[in-house]
Structure formats: C-alpha cells, structure tokens
Simulated assay, not measured.
Amino acid sequence: MDIRKVNEDFAVTGQIAPVQVAEIAGAGFKSIVCNRPDTEDGAVPHDAVEEAAREAGLEFRFLPVVSGAITEENVRDMAAILEDLPRPVLAYCRSGARCLNLYGLVQEMKG
C-alpha cells in the first residue's frame, strides 16, 4: 500500500483490502473515502472495506467517481464529505490519481 500524503488532513492510495484497514487505523487515519465504483474491473466491493473500517473505529464514505469523468456533483459531494469527516482522511481508488484530482478540484472550488 502506497499512501501519498497531500497534507496533514488528506492522503490518497490505490485500492485497499479489508485486511489493510487495521494498518490504516494504526497510521493515524480517522476516515476512509472510497472513490472507486464497485463495478470497475478489479475493485474490491466497498461494503467489505466499509465493514472493516467500522470495526476499526474509522468513518467510511462511498463516493464512486468514474475515471476520467469527474463531475461538478462529484466535486460538491466530496467537499461536503471532507467537511463532515474526522481527519486525517485517506481516499482510495484504483491508483489514487482520481482521488488526488478530485481533491484538487475541491480545493479550486473552495478558492
């Protein structure tokens, strides 16, 4: 698992598995956001990760975003999620790039 820290409050990574959630909690993260649709090839169903997150005492949100097709609604929804969740937050998708792009768009929107 390659966790890339953006700042004190936010980091991204590629696809995670339920067995990795304890390590994520141990690293100090308080929340996990899944930006990968369950229908994407190779995706781990988000509900399995969500269950592990809740068992580890972490908050979890599912905001599926289609790769290469981030919408204004996705950006608004992610902004609201980030306002609501305890930090630091770890967001994941296939590689982490989509989460990073989405976060950048949230920052631009807040401008």
Rank of each mutant, 00 (worst) to 15 (best):
V75G: 02
T71A: 11
S67A: 12
R87D: 04
F62R: 02
D84T: 13
F60T: 06
E73D: 12
R61T: 09
M78F: 14
S67G: 10
R61Y: 13
G57W: 08
E83W: 02
G68T: 06
G68E: 12
E73Q: 12
V65C: 03
I70L: 01
E73H: 06
A80Q: 14
A69S: 13
R76H: 07
I70P: 00
V66H: 03
A69Q: 13
V66R: 07
V75K: 00
D77T: 13
G57P: 09
M78S: 03
P86L: 09
M78R: 04
T71I: 06
R76F: 06
E72T: 11
F60G: 00
R76E: 09
S67Q: 10
N74Y: 05
R61F: 11
L85Y: 05
D84G: 09
V66L: 06
I81M: 08
R76D: 10
F60R: 03
I70Y: 02
E72G: 07
V66M: 05
V65D: 00
P64M: 07
E59K: 13
V65W: 03
R87T: 15
P64Q: 05
F62M: 04
A80N: 07
L58N: 03
V66A: 07
V75R: 02
I81S: 01
L63S: 03
L63H: 11
P86S: 08
V66K: 08
M78D: 00
P64K: 05
A79D: 11
D84W: 11
F62P: 05
R87C: 04
I70H: 00
A56V: 07
L58G: 05
L85S: 02
L82F: 09
V75Y: 01
A69R: 12
M78Q: 04
G57S: 09
P64V: 11
A56D: 13
G68F: 14
G57Q: 09
E72M: 10
L63Q: 12
N74Q: 09
S67D: 12
G68L: 14
A79R: 09
F60E: 02
L63K: 07
L85R: 07
D84L: 12
I81G: 00
D84V: 03
F62S: 06
P64C: 10
S67K: 10
L85V: 12
L85C: 07
E83Y: 03
N74M: 08
A56C: 13
R76G: 02
I70V: 10
I70F: 02
A80R: 13
L63G: 03
R87L: 05
